[in-house]
Amino acid sequence: MFEYLWQLEPLWKVVEISVMISLLIPIAATLVWVERRMIGIWQDRYGPNRVGPFGILQPLADLLKILGKEDWVPPFSDRLVFVLAPIIGAVCVLMSFAVVPFSPSIGVSDLNIGLLFFLAMASLAVYSVVLAGWASNSKYAMLGGMRAAAQTVSYEVFMGLSVMGVVLLTGTFNLREIVLAQTDGWLIQTQFVGFFVFLIAGIAESHRLPFDLPEAETELTAGFHTEYSGLKFALFFLSEYLGVTLISAMSVVLFFGGWLMPEPLASWLPPLFWFILKISFFVMFFILLRTSLPRPRFDQLLSFGWLVMLPLALLNLLVTALLRLGGII
């Protein structure tokens, strides 16, 4: 009977994919609650604590409320593009999770160009904000969309460059192989400059504070999603929090050894739990950044990217290559 089992493999894969998608979205929604709670604690107040124990059912209440809101498409907008834009954003962010290796046995696909796939999806995500800003036909949305385009485009150049040191040391684009190559030691030991650049580029790509200039409330009301409401707004919100999770997951995979841990610790918990723990650490770091840092001016943001981060990423690559050829790392 076992010879027919291989035919079931696609079915299992589809089940795995469905479970993963249906877990990722509630996780992102819960992250909203976690963030509001943590900011509350850091700002010496409670945060949402009414729905369920510690307010943990808040995301569920939010979701139900959002589903009951009117699905409003502004009559002055470009209707088709207006509806498509949030979908593009959510799809691009969620697609990147398809190549993330969660544990030795979990992961949708071991694409041999996984890292390039992630970068491609990160670039495609800019269409979502630009199209949203343009289709809304409102001045704040328009300005937010333009800012988003300039910011994402600038920070993307060295996001690709910063992970090249990793590819150079491991010799592969396959994310699972990159994790396995870190069995002897995490890449952060040699690639801390690359990690620094990657993290900053990641924050800018996911439009998080302090780099949330496309949606800066004090300047542009809500930026590119000024005209959005109901579930379409929720999709933008969701993509932002999924983006945070994604950047954390990618930092862990590329620089912090994915699910791997040094030996005494590794046997305490299953690999998946270590991976989730590391991701939560970075997510908390993102939230801490939001509570503690002010927003820069837009031209400061752009010149910082081009004049500091880009040369830093290039030099990091050169030095890594030199050390590798010299046999030091």
């Binding site: 699905d71 799809v91 949708v108 109901g230």
Partner: peptide, 29 residues
Amino acid sequence: EIWPIAAYFIILVVMLAFMLALSHVLGPK
């Protein structure tokens, strides 16, 4: 390696479309 990604994409788009349709039906006018 590629077909799971294609399946992932299709499931994803169907789910998002379903969510949008649901809110369209449930929401007031």
